[in-house]
Simulated scan of single mutants.
Amino acid sequence: MSELSSWRELLGQIASSSADRERLANEIGVRPITLNRWITGESVPRPHNVRQLVQALPKQHRSRFLELLGEEQDLASDQLPTDPPAEIAYQFIMQVLDVLATSPDTLRFWTVSRLIIQHALRRLDPERVGMAITVVRCMPPSSVGGKIRSLRECLGQGTPPWEADLETKSMFLGAESLAGYVVSTCYPRAVQDLAAETTLVPARRTENEVSAMASPILYANRVAGCLLFSSTQPNYFLSQNRLSLIHGYTRLATLAFDPSEFYPPEKIELYMMPSPAQQQQHLATFRQRVHTIMTEALNTHRLLNNMQAEQMAWQQVEEELIRIFHQSNFSEDQGSTF
């Protein structure tokens, strides 16, 4: 390749064919005509488009492209793509340990998890292009020696277009989900484009979500759940620095759990869960269920605290959701025989 004078010229050579232009445009999330305008100088890409463009380029061209990009006057320095530092600061790790040391057992999960998620959002989405992070926990077995049949989103936060607090949006996940796949295999996995990517990995796309990654929360070869990351941008989880940060935050999240909440992989046998819309009517009755359980315990002179009542209510919901999914599948199978 001859000596190049601008990033536009390099981009033009990389996208010299219509197939290459279309591929790049699809990965960035723009039309091919927009890519042509960048090449010809008719328009300047926006900051988030620049970051996506760099990620979409062949690896052997990225360094030179960034050099040429930095020399241009039509792009401000704050438009240049930056990766977050790959390591979590020592001061924050000490802050997590301090919170862990001073929080009562009943508040440990919530205080440690919220602290980690808030810090992770600032580092992984500093320009607030749109990210959600959710803690997904294994639902404890309903009987001694039983299997883990589902997962539950317990705590989450996001940047626009997601709400700041995602707890009210929580739902049950199972074998149909990316989180379910990751917890079952105990191995992290990302889907870079939920709309276009064809993969054997199950993933149910939610509103605003374009790419997603789940990272299992592990301790002594056992699993308690996962951290689930969602982004409005395609290919957001290709960056090695982001992956390193996600790995670090997931390891810190282990501290939010009691050792008894980690289960050996052979205990994980997830069922399929109904769609979010089907779950809503059951989740909406949660508080009423807790009240009923507490009232019944009081009337029968049983000792039951609020945390135990909540767990029983979640198990009721789980049982109903499993039954609904399998009943609907059974009905469809019966109908197809006629």
Score class of each variant (00 low, 15 high):
Ser170Tyr: 01
Val135Glu: 13
Ser150Asp: 03
Gly156Met: 04
His119Cys: 10
Leu115Ala: 05
Arg128Ala: 06
Asp105Arg: 13
Arg128Asn: 06
Leu173Trp: 06
Val112Thr: 05
Arg122Lys: 14
Arg122Gln: 12
Ala120Thr: 10
Arg137Ala: 13
Leu115Arg: 06
Val144Gln: 08
Ser170Ala: 07
Ala132His: 04
Val135Tyr: 13
Ile116Tyr: 03
Thr106Ala: 07
Gly145Pro: 07
Gly146Tyr: 06
Lys147Val: 13
Glu153Trp: 15
Gly174Asp: 01
Trp110Phe: 14
Arg152Gln: 07
Gly156Gln: 04
Thr168Leu: 08
Phe172His: 02
Lys169Asp: 15
Pro126Met: 00
Val144Tyr: 03
Cys138Val: 08
Glu153Phe: 15
Gln157Phe: 12
Arg137Phe: 04
Pro140Trp: 00
Gln157Ile: 08
Arg108Gly: 01
Ile116Cys: 07
Thr106Asn: 02
Pro160Val: 02
Glu176Trp: 07
Arg152Ser: 05
Glu127Cys: 09
Leu166Trp: 02
Asp105Val: 11
Ile117Cys: 06
Arg114Met: 11
Ser170Cys: 05
Gly146Leu: 05
Val144Gly: 01
Thr168Pro: 04
Ala164Tyr: 14
Cys138Phe: 09
Glu153Ile: 15
Gly146Val: 05
Arg149Asp: 03
Glu163Trp: 12
Val136His: 01
Gly158His: 00
